[in-house]
Amino acid sequence: MPNKSTYKLAFTVLIALLLFCFFANISLGSVSIPNSELLKIFMGTSQNNSFYQIVFDYRLPKAFTAAIVGSGLGVSGLMMQTLFRNPLAGPFVLGITSGASLGVALIIMGSAIFGGVLAGSLVSKWSIVIAASLGSFLVLLSVLVVSSRVRDTMAILIIGLMFGSITTAIVSVLSYFSSAEELQQYIFWGFGSLGNLSWEEVFILFIIYFLGILLSLTSIKALNTLLLGENYARSLGLHIKRSRLTIIIATSLLAGTITAFTGPIAFIGLAIPHMTRQIFNTSNHKLLLPAVFIFGAIVMLICDSVAQLPTSDYTLPINVITSLIGAPVVIWLLVRKRKMVF
């Protein structure tokens, strides 16, 4: 049984690793910037203007986005897994990701169906963000309305998956009628990308993400109680419906906004909580939630650094990397542990 001091040590190591990955992420890229120059840039004594621009306008916002995406999706995945008592739950189960996809598909490809209203108008970054947020929010709202009538959380899980199927079907119909150009734009959004955010967008993302994290912190006690099952949780004085609502809202804030800004990022929400449980062998959310938070940020920063293919001119879609890392991890866990305890 690990005691408090080993946990303290683990957290110190994790935070140090996070800082290291953050700086490694900034220092790596298609243009190689020497570490000494990086230091100068942060001290404000750098003479090289183009290096300064690369770091401040491109690499720093991207690193922040990666940290936000990793920690946000990881935490929302953890909450979903506990709430739905299902180790395979992740942000996608409530249809949040598919809702966002539907919103984006409607904006990009809807012009073919809705005719002149949207046709010809520039599909700006902001309209995509707003559409994705609206899409995930509307799907969440529908799931919430249904879930208030259903007492069983497993039913909500299935309802979320069904909403996902419906949105996928609608997106297929849309793509059938849309032009190659529109289809390509949608597919690019679907690849996911961390690097397209301006400082202003990172700031907006951060504010909503911060709210989601705050809500998840207030849910820690409820999440621990839910480990016993809903009937025991009720007998311990927990307001099941209220806690469930808080957890779902926190998840949709985190996953919905992140998906809106970066596109759907695969496997992070599912794999991060399981990987963290390997390090911290505990089910206590007081430890697990902050650990998932830091570890998610670390993994995402590493994935992004790899996706950059340092010193080359190519950048891989971030989803390729997260799937290549995430899927084998989940398989390995299933084979090795046979059962995902949580």
């Binding site: 049984m1 621990n224 480990l227 099952g229 089910s283 305890v341």
Partner: peptide
């Protein structure tokens, strides 16, 4: 307080942690 027939969800809890959840109220 209750002892139910249903299984608890997380069997990964330690005995101490599980009993400590009884102090939640």
């Amino acid at each position: 307080s209750l002892v139910l027939t249903e299984q608890i969800i997380s069997k990964n809890l330690s005995v101490f942690e599980l009993i400590a959840l009884g102090r939640q109220p």
